[in-house]
């Protein structure tokens, strides 16, 4: 596969390490009430779609960017590649 890195352009997927569902961005607050149930969901429950999937990839043999790649798990078509940091900020993550 080829991942079109937002900073570096098209790179072979062999340069990357795959992590999984980009839902991992939304880590619950460990100090909040009811955090245990939220963390169990966060750590163990994933959607496993046959189709479009947002996932985290790490450019380990490159610039060390974590990316959010939107990929179709059936066809492997990649429709979007963004810096995970930008996505995380947009989705409300901060310090």
């Amino acid at each position: 596969m080829i991942i079109n890195h937002p900073l570096l352009g098209p790179r072979d997927s062999q340069e990357f390490v795959y992590l999984g569902d980009a839902a991992l961005i939304h880590r619950p607050d460990g100090m909040a009430d009811g955090s245990l149930d939220k963390f169990i969901d966060y750590a163990y429950l994933r959607d496993n779609p046959a189709g479009e999937h947002r996932e985290l990839w790490y450019h380990e043999q490159g610039d060390r960017s974590w990316l959010v790649v939107t990929r179709n798990t059936v066809t492997h078509e990649i429709t979007a590649v963004e810096l995970a940091r930008d996505v995380a900020r947009r989705e409300g993550r901060s310090k």
Binding site: L19, L24, R27, Y58, W66, L83, S94
Partner: peptide
């Protein structure tokens, strides 16, 4: 050494992007 470095980059870019 490598997995921990990867994990730390994950923490600072994905979980807490403004640190």
């Amino acid at each position: 050494a490598v997995p921990v470095f990867r994990h730390l980059e994950y923490c600072r870019q994905v979980l807490w992007p403004d640190l």
